[in-house]
Design a binder for these strands. Structure first.
Lengths: 237, 237
DNA sequence: CCTTGTAATCTGGTTAACCAATTTATAAGT
DNA sequence: ACTTATAAATTGGTTAACCAGATTACAAGG
Protein backbone atom coordinates (compact mmCIF):
# COMPACT_ATOMS: atom_id res chain seq x y z
CA UNK A 1 0.00 0.00 0.00
CA UNK A 2 1.20 3.44 -0.88
CA UNK A 3 1.19 5.88 2.02
CA UNK A 4 -1.27 8.76 1.74
CA UNK A 5 1.29 11.44 2.18
CA UNK A 6 3.39 10.23 -0.73
CA UNK A 7 0.75 11.25 -3.24
CA UNK A 8 1.17 14.87 -2.15
CA UNK A 9 4.93 14.64 -2.42
CA UNK A 10 4.63 13.22 -5.92
CA UNK A 11 2.35 16.04 -6.97
CA UNK A 12 4.75 18.59 -5.48
CA UNK A 13 7.65 17.01 -7.37
CA UNK A 14 5.85 17.24 -10.69
CA UNK A 15 5.01 20.87 -9.92
CA UNK A 16 8.67 21.61 -9.22
CA UNK A 17 9.69 19.87 -12.43
CA UNK A 18 7.19 21.95 -14.40
CA UNK A 19 8.42 25.17 -12.79
CA UNK A 20 11.96 24.19 -13.65
CA UNK A 21 10.99 23.48 -17.26
CA UNK A 22 9.20 26.82 -17.56
CA UNK A 23 12.43 28.43 -16.34
CA UNK A 24 14.48 26.60 -18.96
CA UNK A 25 11.98 27.62 -21.61
CA UNK A 26 12.28 31.29 -20.71
CA UNK A 27 16.07 30.94 -21.01
CA UNK A 28 16.08 28.93 -24.18
CA UNK A 29 13.59 31.09 -26.01
CA UNK A 30 15.24 34.22 -24.62
CA UNK A 31 11.89 35.57 -23.54
CA UNK A 32 12.15 39.23 -22.68
CA UNK A 33 10.13 40.87 -19.89
CA UNK A 34 6.55 41.28 -21.02
CA UNK A 35 6.79 38.52 -23.61
CA UNK A 36 4.12 35.89 -23.84
CA UNK A 37 4.64 32.34 -22.62
CA UNK A 38 3.40 29.54 -24.91
CA UNK A 39 -0.23 28.68 -24.22
CA UNK A 40 -1.15 26.32 -21.41
CA UNK A 41 -2.13 23.67 -23.97
CA UNK A 42 1.23 23.79 -25.70
CA UNK A 43 3.09 23.66 -22.39
CA UNK A 44 1.10 20.67 -21.15
CA UNK A 45 1.80 18.88 -24.44
CA UNK A 46 5.48 19.82 -24.48
CA UNK A 47 6.03 18.80 -20.84
CA UNK A 48 3.74 15.78 -21.15
CA UNK A 49 1.67 16.68 -18.10
CA UNK A 50 -1.95 17.64 -17.60
CA UNK A 51 -3.03 21.17 -18.32
CA UNK A 52 -4.25 21.59 -14.75
CA UNK A 53 -0.77 20.76 -13.49
CA UNK A 54 0.61 23.46 -15.76
CA UNK A 55 -2.01 25.86 -14.46
CA UNK A 56 -1.07 25.13 -10.85
CA UNK A 57 2.62 25.69 -11.58
CA UNK A 58 1.78 28.98 -13.28
CA UNK A 59 -0.34 30.02 -10.31
CA UNK A 60 2.58 29.36 -7.99
CA UNK A 61 4.93 31.46 -10.12
CA UNK A 62 2.24 34.13 -10.23
CA UNK A 63 2.26 34.15 -6.44
CA UNK A 64 5.97 34.89 -6.47
CA UNK A 65 5.37 37.65 -8.99
CA UNK A 66 7.26 35.97 -11.83
CA UNK A 67 4.33 35.45 -14.19
CA UNK A 68 1.08 37.23 -14.91
CA UNK A 69 -1.78 35.28 -16.40
CA UNK A 70 -4.41 37.30 -18.23
CA UNK A 71 -7.71 35.68 -19.32
CA UNK A 72 -8.20 35.09 -23.03
CA UNK A 73 -4.88 36.70 -23.72
CA UNK A 74 -1.93 34.72 -22.40
CA UNK A 75 0.59 34.32 -19.62
CA UNK A 76 3.29 36.97 -19.52
CA UNK A 77 6.70 36.97 -17.90
CA UNK A 78 7.21 39.66 -15.27
CA UNK A 79 9.27 42.78 -15.83
CA UNK A 80 12.27 41.61 -13.86
CA UNK A 81 14.63 40.34 -16.55
CA UNK A 82 16.00 36.90 -17.36
CA UNK A 83 18.87 36.98 -14.88
CA UNK A 84 16.65 37.71 -11.88
CA UNK A 85 14.12 35.23 -13.23
CA UNK A 86 16.71 32.44 -13.33
CA UNK A 87 18.04 33.20 -9.87
CA UNK A 88 14.60 33.37 -8.35
CA UNK A 89 13.31 30.16 -9.92
CA UNK A 90 16.43 28.39 -8.69
CA UNK A 91 15.81 29.72 -5.19
CA UNK A 92 12.12 28.82 -5.24
CA UNK A 93 12.94 25.25 -6.20
CA UNK A 94 15.59 25.03 -3.51
CA UNK A 95 13.32 26.32 -0.71
CA UNK A 96 13.08 23.84 2.13
CA UNK A 97 10.28 23.31 4.61
CA UNK A 98 10.44 25.70 7.56
CA UNK A 99 11.74 24.45 10.90
CA UNK A 100 10.48 25.60 14.28
CA UNK A 101 13.57 27.69 14.92
CA UNK A 102 13.09 29.70 11.71
CA UNK A 103 9.45 30.13 12.64
CA UNK A 104 10.22 31.59 16.07
CA UNK A 105 13.01 33.81 14.76
CA UNK A 106 10.76 35.24 12.07
CA UNK A 107 7.83 35.72 14.41
CA UNK A 108 9.88 37.68 16.92
CA UNK A 109 11.41 39.83 14.18
CA UNK A 110 8.02 40.64 12.66
CA UNK A 111 6.21 41.27 15.93
CA UNK A 112 8.84 43.56 17.43
CA UNK A 113 8.30 45.68 14.33
CA UNK A 114 4.51 45.45 13.99
CA UNK A 115 3.97 46.38 17.64
CA UNK A 116 6.16 49.45 17.15
CA UNK A 117 4.33 50.47 13.98
CA UNK A 118 0.96 49.76 15.60
CA UNK A 119 1.73 52.06 18.50
CA UNK A 120 2.53 54.82 16.01
CA UNK A 121 -0.27 54.31 13.51
CA UNK A 122 -3.17 52.63 15.26
CA UNK A 123 -6.56 54.24 14.76
CA UNK A 124 -9.23 54.26 17.46
CA UNK A 125 -10.91 51.41 15.65
CA UNK A 126 -7.69 49.40 15.66
CA UNK A 127 -7.38 49.99 19.38
CA UNK A 128 -10.90 48.70 20.00
CA UNK A 129 -10.21 45.55 18.00
CA UNK A 130 -7.02 44.90 19.97
CA UNK A 131 -8.92 45.48 23.23
CA UNK A 132 -11.60 43.00 22.18
CA UNK A 133 -8.96 40.39 21.41
CA UNK A 134 -7.26 41.08 24.73
CA UNK A 135 -10.52 40.69 26.68
CA UNK A 136 -11.43 37.48 24.87
CA UNK A 137 -8.02 36.10 25.79
CA UNK A 138 -8.15 37.17 29.44
CA UNK A 139 -11.63 35.81 30.00
CA UNK A 140 -10.76 32.42 28.63
CA UNK A 141 -7.56 32.16 30.65
CA UNK A 142 -9.36 33.16 33.86
CA UNK A 143 -11.91 30.44 33.19
CA UNK A 144 -8.98 28.07 33.19
CA UNK A 145 -9.40 27.13 29.55
CA UNK A 146 -6.80 26.80 26.81
CA UNK A 147 -6.43 30.15 25.03
CA UNK A 148 -3.74 29.65 22.41
CA UNK A 149 -6.07 30.80 19.65
CA UNK A 150 -7.15 33.98 21.43
CA UNK A 151 -3.49 34.65 22.20
CA UNK A 152 -2.53 34.59 18.54
CA UNK A 153 -5.60 36.61 17.50
CA UNK A 154 -4.41 39.35 19.86
CA UNK A 155 -1.08 39.39 18.08
CA UNK A 156 -2.78 39.37 14.68
CA UNK A 157 -4.89 42.37 15.70
CA UNK A 158 -1.65 44.23 16.39
CA UNK A 159 -0.26 43.19 13.01
CA UNK A 160 -3.38 44.58 11.37
CA UNK A 161 -2.99 47.87 13.25
CA UNK A 162 0.60 48.18 12.02
CA UNK A 163 -0.73 49.49 8.71
CA UNK A 164 1.81 47.36 6.83
CA UNK A 165 -0.14 44.94 4.67
CA UNK A 166 2.89 42.80 3.83
CA UNK A 167 3.90 42.21 7.44
CA UNK A 168 0.24 41.53 8.20
CA UNK A 169 0.19 38.98 5.41
CA UNK A 170 3.43 37.35 6.57
CA UNK A 171 2.09 37.11 10.13
CA UNK A 172 -0.99 35.33 8.78
CA UNK A 173 1.19 32.86 6.92
CA UNK A 174 3.24 31.83 9.95
CA UNK A 175 0.44 31.91 12.57
CA UNK A 176 -1.20 28.51 11.95
CA UNK A 177 2.12 26.72 12.21
CA UNK A 178 2.88 28.56 15.44
CA UNK A 179 -0.46 27.46 16.90
CA UNK A 180 0.14 23.85 15.89
CA UNK A 181 3.61 23.82 17.41
CA UNK A 182 2.39 25.48 20.59
CA UNK A 183 -0.28 22.86 21.07
CA UNK A 184 2.13 20.08 20.21
CA UNK A 185 4.69 21.20 22.79
CA UNK A 186 2.05 22.50 25.23
CA UNK A 187 3.84 25.83 25.33
CA UNK A 188 0.95 27.74 26.82
CA UNK A 189 -0.11 25.96 29.97
CA UNK A 190 -2.15 27.66 32.66
CA UNK A 191 0.73 28.88 34.80
CA UNK A 192 2.30 30.65 31.86
CA UNK A 193 -1.05 31.91 30.59
CA UNK A 194 -1.82 33.78 33.82
CA UNK A 195 1.47 35.58 33.56
CA UNK A 196 0.82 36.36 29.92
CA UNK A 197 -2.38 38.25 30.73
CA UNK A 198 -0.49 41.07 32.38
CA UNK A 199 2.12 41.02 29.64
CA UNK A 200 -0.58 41.39 27.01
CA UNK A 201 -2.13 44.20 29.01
CA UNK A 202 1.21 46.00 29.16
CA UNK A 203 1.56 45.74 25.40
CA UNK A 204 -1.95 47.05 24.90
CA UNK A 205 -1.37 50.00 27.22
CA UNK A 206 1.83 50.93 25.38
CA UNK A 207 -0.02 50.89 22.05
CA UNK A 208 -2.80 52.95 23.58
CA UNK A 209 -0.27 55.49 24.87
CA UNK A 210 1.35 55.48 21.42
CA UNK A 211 4.74 54.78 22.96
CA UNK A 212 6.74 52.79 20.38
CA UNK A 213 9.80 52.15 22.54
CA UNK A 214 7.73 50.86 25.44
CA UNK A 215 5.57 48.75 23.15
CA UNK A 216 8.61 47.08 21.64
CA UNK A 217 10.16 46.47 25.07
CA UNK A 218 6.98 44.92 26.46
CA UNK A 219 6.70 42.66 23.44
CA UNK A 220 10.33 41.66 23.92
CA UNK A 221 9.65 40.80 27.57
CA UNK A 222 6.65 38.76 26.49
CA UNK A 223 8.71 36.70 24.05
CA UNK A 224 11.57 36.22 26.49
CA UNK A 225 9.28 34.53 28.99
CA UNK A 226 7.44 32.59 26.31
CA UNK A 227 10.33 31.08 24.44
CA UNK A 228 12.63 30.62 27.40
CA UNK A 229 9.88 28.47 28.83
CA UNK A 230 9.43 26.74 25.50
CA UNK A 231 13.13 25.99 25.33
CA UNK A 232 13.05 24.46 28.80
CA UNK A 233 10.16 22.11 28.17
CA UNK A 234 11.65 21.09 24.85
CA UNK A 235 14.87 20.12 26.58
CA UNK A 236 13.00 18.23 29.31
CA UNK A 237 10.95 16.12 26.91
CA UNK B 1 -15.74 46.12 -24.50
CA UNK B 2 -14.81 44.71 -21.15
CA UNK B 3 -11.35 45.66 -19.96
CA UNK B 4 -8.89 42.78 -19.69
CA UNK B 5 -7.98 43.42 -16.12
CA UNK B 6 -11.58 43.20 -14.90
CA UNK B 7 -11.77 39.49 -15.63
CA UNK B 8 -9.02 38.88 -13.08
CA UNK B 9 -10.79 41.04 -10.50
CA UNK B 10 -14.00 39.11 -11.06
CA UNK B 11 -12.23 35.82 -10.58
CA UNK B 12 -10.59 37.12 -7.40
CA UNK B 13 -13.97 38.22 -6.07
CA UNK B 14 -15.53 34.81 -6.62
CA UNK B 15 -12.52 33.26 -4.90
CA UNK B 16 -13.00 35.54 -1.91
CA UNK B 17 -16.69 34.73 -1.78
CA UNK B 18 -15.93 31.01 -1.83
CA UNK B 19 -13.35 31.39 0.95
CA UNK B 20 -15.90 33.31 2.96
CA UNK B 21 -18.53 30.61 2.42
CA UNK B 22 -16.10 27.89 3.45
CA UNK B 23 -15.51 29.87 6.63
CA UNK B 24 -19.24 30.09 7.32
CA UNK B 25 -19.58 26.38 6.68
CA UNK B 26 -16.90 25.54 9.23
CA UNK B 27 -18.75 27.72 11.74
CA UNK B 28 -22.21 26.46 10.95
CA UNK B 29 -21.29 22.81 10.95
CA UNK B 30 -19.08 23.32 14.00
CA UNK B 31 -16.24 21.50 12.33
CA UNK B 32 -13.56 20.63 14.84
CA UNK B 33 -9.85 20.60 14.02
CA UNK B 34 -9.04 17.57 11.92
CA UNK B 35 -12.60 17.18 10.67
CA UNK B 36 -13.27 16.62 7.03
CA UNK B 37 -14.69 19.32 4.80
CA UNK B 38 -17.51 18.28 2.42
CA UNK B 39 -16.13 17.02 -0.87
CA UNK B 40 -15.16 19.44 -3.63
CA UNK B 41 -18.14 18.28 -5.68
CA UNK B 42 -20.62 19.02 -2.90
CA UNK B 43 -19.05 22.41 -2.23
CA UNK B 44 -19.16 23.40 -5.89
CA UNK B 45 -22.81 22.37 -6.04
CA UNK B 46 -23.71 24.09 -2.77
CA UNK B 47 -21.93 27.32 -3.69
CA UNK B 48 -23.05 27.11 -7.33
CA UNK B 49 -19.55 27.57 -8.71
CA UNK B 50 -17.24 25.37 -10.74
CA UNK B 51 -15.27 22.68 -8.99
CA UNK B 52 -12.01 24.22 -10.20
CA UNK B 53 -12.94 27.48 -8.51
CA UNK B 54 -13.49 25.55 -5.29
CA UNK B 55 -10.15 23.85 -5.75
CA UNK B 56 -8.38 27.18 -6.21
CA UNK B 57 -9.96 28.59 -3.07
CA UNK B 58 -8.92 25.48 -1.14
CA UNK B 59 -5.38 25.81 -2.47
CA UNK B 60 -5.23 29.38 -1.23
CA UNK B 61 -6.42 28.38 2.23
CA UNK B 62 -3.90 25.54 2.15
CA UNK B 63 -1.19 28.11 1.50
CA UNK B 64 -2.20 29.93 4.67
CA UNK B 65 -2.15 26.63 6.55
CA UNK B 66 -5.88 26.57 7.25
CA UNK B 67 -6.76 23.50 5.21
CA UNK B 68 -4.97 20.32 4.23
CA UNK B 69 -6.06 18.50 1.12
CA UNK B 70 -5.14 14.83 0.93
CA UNK B 71 -5.55 12.87 -2.32
CA UNK B 72 -8.34 10.29 -2.44
CA UNK B 73 -9.24 11.09 1.12
CA UNK B 74 -10.58 14.58 1.63
CA UNK B 75 -9.83 18.11 2.71
CA UNK B 76 -9.25 18.57 6.42
CA UNK B 77 -9.43 21.68 8.58
CA UNK B 78 -6.15 22.56 10.30
CA UNK B 79 -5.52 21.98 13.98
CA UNK B 80 -5.95 25.59 15.00
CA UNK B 81 -9.53 25.71 16.29
CA UNK B 82 -12.63 27.49 15.08
CA UNK B 83 -11.91 30.81 16.77
CA UNK B 84 -8.49 31.22 15.17
CA UNK B 85 -9.94 29.93 11.91
CA UNK B 86 -12.63 32.63 11.88
CA UNK B 87 -10.23 35.41 12.77
CA UNK B 88 -7.72 34.36 10.16
CA UNK B 89 -10.23 33.97 7.34
CA UNK B 90 -11.59 37.42 8.16
CA UNK B 91 -8.06 38.83 8.02
CA UNK B 92 -7.21 37.03 4.78
CA UNK B 93 -10.30 38.47 3.10
CA UNK B 94 -9.52 41.93 4.40
CA UNK B 95 -5.90 41.92 3.17
CA UNK B 96 -5.21 44.82 0.85
CA UNK B 97 -2.68 45.08 -1.94
CA UNK B 98 0.77 46.11 -0.73
CA UNK B 99 1.95 49.68 -1.21
CA UNK B 100 5.53 50.70 -1.92
CA UNK B 101 6.04 52.00 1.60
CA UNK B 102 5.09 48.65 3.16
CA UNK B 103 7.39 46.96 0.70
CA UNK B 104 10.41 49.06 1.64
CA UNK B 105 9.71 48.80 5.38
CA UNK B 106 9.47 45.05 5.19
CA UNK B 107 12.54 44.70 3.02
CA UNK B 108 14.71 46.70 5.37
CA UNK B 109 13.42 44.79 8.39
CA UNK B 110 14.10 41.42 6.77
CA UNK B 111 17.50 42.28 5.35
CA UNK B 112 18.92 43.80 8.53
CA UNK B 113 18.13 40.43 10.09
CA UNK B 114 19.20 38.10 7.28
CA UNK B 115 22.56 39.83 6.91
CA UNK B 116 23.17 39.39 10.62
CA UNK B 117 22.19 35.73 10.54
CA UNK B 118 24.20 35.17 7.37
CA UNK B 119 27.36 36.55 8.99
CA UNK B 120 26.87 34.08 11.85
CA UNK B 121 25.83 30.99 9.93
CA UNK B 122 27.22 31.25 6.41
CA UNK B 123 29.09 28.20 5.15
CA UNK B 124 32.04 28.45 2.80
CA UNK B 125 29.71 27.52 -0.03
CA UNK B 126 27.32 30.33 0.93
CA UNK B 127 30.23 32.75 0.92
CA UNK B 128 31.26 31.68 -2.58
CA UNK B 129 27.72 32.17 -3.89
CA UNK B 130 27.56 35.64 -2.37
CA UNK B 131 30.94 36.48 -3.90
CA UNK B 132 29.76 35.32 -7.31
CA UNK B 133 26.67 37.52 -7.06
CA UNK B 134 28.83 40.44 -5.93
CA UNK B 135 31.24 40.03 -8.87
CA UNK B 136 28.42 39.71 -11.39
CA UNK B 137 26.97 42.96 -10.03
CA UNK B 138 30.25 44.86 -10.02
CA UNK B 139 31.20 43.81 -13.53
CA UNK B 140 27.90 44.91 -14.98
CA UNK B 141 27.99 48.27 -13.20
CA UNK B 142 31.55 48.93 -14.34
CA UNK B 143 30.47 48.20 -17.90
CA UNK B 144 27.94 51.00 -17.41
CA UNK B 145 24.95 48.72 -17.73
CA UNK B 146 21.82 48.54 -15.62
CA UNK B 147 22.34 46.04 -12.78
CA UNK B 148 19.14 46.07 -10.75
CA UNK B 149 18.72 42.33 -11.19
CA UNK B 150 22.27 41.48 -10.12
CA UNK B 151 21.81 43.83 -7.15
CA UNK B 152 18.78 41.94 -5.89
CA UNK B 153 20.40 38.54 -6.55
CA UNK B 154 23.23 39.59 -4.24
CA UNK B 155 20.70 40.32 -1.51
CA UNK B 156 18.90 37.04 -2.18
CA UNK B 157 22.18 35.15 -1.84
CA UNK B 158 22.54 36.67 1.62
CA UNK B 159 18.98 35.66 2.49
CA UNK B 160 19.79 32.10 1.49
CA UNK B 161 22.92 32.12 3.66
CA UNK B 162 20.85 33.24 6.66
CA UNK B 163 19.74 29.65 7.15
CA UNK B 164 16.20 30.83 7.85
CA UNK B 165 13.96 29.33 5.18
CA UNK B 166 10.96 31.48 6.06
CA UNK B 167 12.82 34.78 5.77
CA UNK B 168 14.37 33.46 2.56
CA UNK B 169 10.88 32.69 1.26
CA UNK B 170 9.54 36.11 2.30
CA UNK B 171 12.45 37.83 0.56
CA UNK B 172 11.64 35.92 -2.61
CA UNK B 173 8.02 37.05 -2.40
CA UNK B 174 8.82 40.76 -2.16
CA UNK B 175 11.80 40.86 -4.55
CA UNK B 176 9.98 41.00 -7.92
CA UNK B 177 7.87 43.92 -6.80
CA UNK B 178 10.98 45.72 -5.57
CA UNK B 179 12.65 45.25 -8.96
CA UNK B 180 9.59 46.54 -10.80
CA UNK B 181 9.36 49.61 -8.58
CA UNK B 182 13.09 50.30 -8.88
CA UNK B 183 12.90 50.23 -12.64
CA UNK B 184 9.75 52.31 -12.66
CA UNK B 185 11.28 55.04 -10.50
CA UNK B 186 14.81 54.56 -11.94
CA UNK B 187 16.13 54.18 -8.41
CA UNK B 188 19.43 52.66 -9.43
CA UNK B 189 21.04 54.96 -11.91
CA UNK B 190 24.75 54.82 -12.70
CA UNK B 191 25.91 57.38 -10.18
CA UNK B 192 24.24 55.54 -7.34
CA UNK B 193 25.34 52.16 -8.67
CA UNK B 194 29.03 53.03 -8.52
CA UNK B 195 28.64 53.98 -4.89
CA UNK B 196 26.73 50.79 -4.22
CA UNK B 197 29.62 48.60 -5.36
CA UNK B 198 31.74 49.55 -2.39
CA UNK B 199 28.75 49.25 -0.08
CA UNK B 200 28.10 45.73 -1.33
CA UNK B 201 31.77 44.91 -0.88
CA UNK B 202 31.66 46.15 2.72
CA UNK B 203 28.66 43.94 3.42
CA UNK B 204 30.41 40.97 1.87
CA UNK B 205 33.58 41.54 3.90
CA UNK B 206 31.57 41.75 7.13
CA UNK B 207 29.86 38.44 6.34
CA UNK B 208 33.22 36.92 5.47
CA UNK B 209 34.67 38.12 8.79
CA UNK B 210 31.58 36.76 10.55
CA UNK B 211 30.99 40.08 12.24
CA UNK B 212 27.21 40.41 12.75
CA UNK B 213 27.22 43.95 14.15
CA UNK B 214 29.34 45.29 11.32
CA UNK B 215 27.29 43.42 8.72
CA UNK B 216 24.07 44.92 10.03
CA UNK B 217 25.60 48.42 10.15
CA UNK B 218 26.89 48.18 6.58
CA UNK B 219 23.51 47.01 5.36
CA UNK B 220 21.88 49.90 7.21
CA UNK B 221 24.26 52.36 5.53
CA UNK B 222 23.44 50.80 2.18
CA UNK B 223 19.70 51.28 2.68
CA UNK B 224 20.09 54.81 3.99
CA UNK B 225 21.76 55.92 0.78
CA UNK B 226 19.42 53.91 -1.40
CA UNK B 227 16.10 55.03 -0.03
CA UNK B 228 17.08 58.56 0.81
CA UNK B 229 17.89 58.88 -2.86
CA UNK B 230 14.66 57.16 -3.78
CA UNK B 231 12.70 59.56 -1.59
CA UNK B 232 14.33 62.55 -3.27
CA UNK B 233 13.61 61.48 -6.83
CA UNK B 234 10.06 60.60 -5.89
CA UNK B 235 9.53 64.09 -4.50
CA UNK B 236 11.06 65.72 -7.56
CA UNK B 237 8.91 63.84 -10.06
C1' DC C 1 -20.02 -10.42 19.75
C1' DC C 2 -15.84 -9.63 17.38
C1' DT C 3 -12.78 -10.12 13.45
C1' DT C 4 -11.98 -10.39 8.58
C1' DG C 5 -12.65 -10.19 3.62
C1' DT C 6 -14.86 -8.13 -0.10
C1' DA C 7 -17.49 -5.10 -2.79
C1' DA C 8 -19.65 -0.72 -3.26
C1' DT C 9 -18.96 4.06 -2.60
C1' DC C 10 -16.50 8.31 -2.04
C1' DT C 11 -12.35 11.08 -2.50
C1' DG C 12 -8.99 14.38 -4.79
C1' DG C 13 -6.52 14.33 -9.19
C1' DT C 14 -6.60 14.12 -14.30
C1' DT C 15 -8.28 14.49 -18.80
C1' DA C 16 -10.64 16.26 -22.77
C1' DA C 17 -14.18 18.87 -24.71
C1' DC C 18 -16.44 23.32 -24.51
C1' DC C 19 -17.10 28.64 -23.66
C1' DA C 20 -16.54 33.51 -24.15
C1' DA C 21 -13.31 37.09 -24.79
C1' DT C 22 -9.31 38.33 -27.29
C1' DT C 23 -6.16 38.53 -30.88
C1' DT C 24 -4.77 37.86 -35.51
C1' DA C 25 -5.60 37.24 -40.41
C1' DT C 26 -8.21 38.35 -44.27
C1' DA C 27 -11.04 40.89 -47.32
C1' DA C 28 -13.73 44.83 -48.67
C1' DG C 29 -14.22 49.76 -49.27
C1' DT C 30 -12.28 54.22 -50.08
C1' DA D 1 -1.83 51.99 -50.33
C1' DC D 2 -4.41 52.60 -46.19
C1' DT D 3 -8.31 52.05 -43.20
C1' DT D 4 -12.06 49.47 -41.66
C1' DA D 5 -15.10 45.48 -41.20
C1' DT D 6 -15.53 40.74 -40.69
C1' DA D 7 -14.28 36.05 -39.83
C1' DA D 8 -11.09 32.55 -38.33
C1' DA D 9 -7.83 31.07 -34.85
C1' DT D 10 -5.99 31.43 -30.18
C1' DT D 11 -6.32 32.29 -25.35
C1' DG D 12 -7.32 31.35 -20.24
C1' DG D 13 -11.45 29.76 -17.75
C1' DT D 14 -15.16 26.29 -17.04
C1' DT D 15 -17.46 22.05 -17.19
C1' DA D 16 -18.33 17.17 -16.96
C1' DA D 17 -16.78 12.63 -17.30
C1' DC D 18 -13.19 9.50 -15.86
C1' DC D 19 -9.19 7.39 -12.88
C1' DA D 20 -6.81 5.17 -9.04
C1' DG D 21 -6.39 5.07 -4.35
C1' DA D 22 -8.88 5.41 0.20
C1' DT D 23 -12.83 4.69 2.95
C1' DT D 24 -16.97 2.58 4.38
C1' DA D 25 -20.65 -1.00 4.80
C1' DC D 26 -21.78 -5.29 5.28
C1' DA D 27 -21.83 -10.07 5.30
C1' DA D 28 -19.37 -14.41 6.27
C1' DG D 29 -16.61 -16.96 9.52
C1' DG D 30 -14.83 -17.68 14.00
Amino acid sequence: MKLKILAKVDSLDTQKSIISKIGELINFKNLEPGDKLPSERMLSEKFEVSRSSVREAIQKLELYGLLDSIPQSGTFVANIGVIAMNGMIEDILRLEDPDFKSLVETRILLELKTVRLASLRRTEEDLEKIKEALDAYSEKVLRGEDAVQEDLLFHLAIARASGNSIMNNFMLIITPEIITNFEKYHVCDKKLANLSISEHQDIFEAIKKQDPMLAKQKMKDHFTVLYQYCYNIKKST
